[in-house]
Amino acid sequence: EKWLLVLEQFIVLTLRRMAVVAVKEYEAKPRTEWIFEHPCQLVLSASQVFWCRDVEAALKATGDLHGLASYQQACRKQLSELAMLTGRDLTRLQRGLLSTLITTDVHSRDLVDQMVDDGVLSVAEFGWQKQLRTAWEAGGADGGELALRQNNSHFGYGYEYQGCQSRLVCTPLTDRIYMTVTGALRLCLGAAPSGPAGTGKTETVKDMAKCLAFPCIVYNCSDGVTYKMTEKFFSGLAQCGAWACLDEFNRINIEVLSVIASQLAEIRHALLARARRLTFQGVPNIELKPNFGVFITMNPGYAGRTELPDNLKVLFRPVAVMTPDFRMIAEVILFSEGFRDAKALS
């Protein structure tokens, strides 16, 4: 067990050092070369750091829409350069990285377009503050830290190694769920996306965890879940600072839900007190990492579903999830794979 903890520490340490190198080298090399020289998750995060920096510089430069409108053209140029790369002979890993980077860059371009349309003129306006922004905070032993902000929420980057994973196509619905999740976490609460099956409730929570580089464990609930199972589950997650996404949460029996409410309330009180250790369900000295978070997804109105007790409802921020824009998602996926006429094909 000890060597496994040491391994985990060194993974985090290695990613921290590689993040410093990736950020330093971004402006020293052409972007089309730079992206293939660093791990996928750091390429995505460092790209977002410089995108946020450039948007803020454009907003501060002129005090009107001309700065942002000129950066709009730069975003489109960057995207077309990445699209040109898809025609090259690439390895499977490079193609996966490029596809993921194009997906996030398309969302960045759309956000700039939206801000120009909405007439956002200052970095203090809600049109910019509501975005999930990645920043590089200089200082510290390693030379700097990645951090994420949204509205008045602030999170340190988790440095959980993820490999080259695909990312969700962000729609306005995804952005709204992100805002609910970050607002809830700031108050040490969970979030409860609810809506019909297949609308992306679980995938959005998982994608948010990828943005922050936190581990996220998805568990499919049923009426066989007991309070002892959840006690062990939450205890383990609190000690490693992971997120839990409990799918179809309202299938659990009402008696168990009531105990889950008391378990989560105990952890929340410790998080609010910024405690490093807590007594959890009578077990003393349990380590608690501040990244811990619990999210529940529900399909309301289905047969065999339980109404949540009030003491559990107050621990979660509700958010309604509707059917996403499939045409827009298809367009971004096709474009990320190198199709030039993605709009017409979608």
Rank of each mutant, 00 (worst) to 15 (best):
Q9G: 14
L13S: 14
T14W: 12
L15W: 00
M18E: 15
E27W: 05
R31L: 15
T32E: 15
E33L: 05
I35F: 04
F36A: 07
V43G: 06
L44Q: 14
F50V: 05
V55L: 05
A58P: 04
A61N: 10
T62V: 06
G63R: 02
L65T: 14
S70I: 10
Q73S: 12
A74N: 00
R76D: 14
K77H: 12
S80E: 15
E81T: 02
L82F: 15
R92C: 09
L93M: 00
Q94C: 08
L98E: 10
L101D: 12
I102M: 03
T104C: 05
V106P: 01
M115V: 13
V120E: 02
L121K: 07
Q131N: 12
T134Q: 12
T134L: 04
A138E: 15
G140A: 08
G144K: 11
L148T: 10
R149P: 03
S153V: 07
H154N: 01
F155L: 05
G156Y: 03
G156D: 13
G158A: 09
G163K: 04
Q165M: 08
S166Q: 12
L168P: 08
C170D: 12
T171D: 01
L173C: 10
D175V: 08
I177K: 04
Y178Q: 04
Y178I: 09
M179G: 15
M179Q: 15
V181G: 03
A184W: 07
L189K: 11
L189R: 11
G190R: 08
A191V: 01
S194D: 11
S194E: 14
T204Q: 06
V205I: 15
V205E: 03
K206S: 13
K210F: 13
F214S: 01
Y219K: 09
Y219F: 03
N220V: 03
G224K: 14
V225G: 08
F234Y: 13
S235D: 08
Q239K: 04
W243S: 01
W243H: 05
C245D: 11
C245P: 01
E248L: 08
I254W: 02
V256K: 10
I260K: 07
I267T: 03
H269M: 06
R274C: 12
A275C: 08
R276M: 01
T279F: 02
F280Y: 14
G282C: 09
G282W: 03
G282K: 01
V283F: 07
L288Y: 14
L288D: 14
P290E: 06
F292A: 08
I296H: 08
N299D: 14
P300A: 05
Y302H: 10
Y302F: 14
G304V: 13
K313T: 12
L315H: 06
M322K: 08
T323K: 02
M328G: 07
S336C: 09
G338M: 06
F339H: 08
A344G: 13
L345W: 11
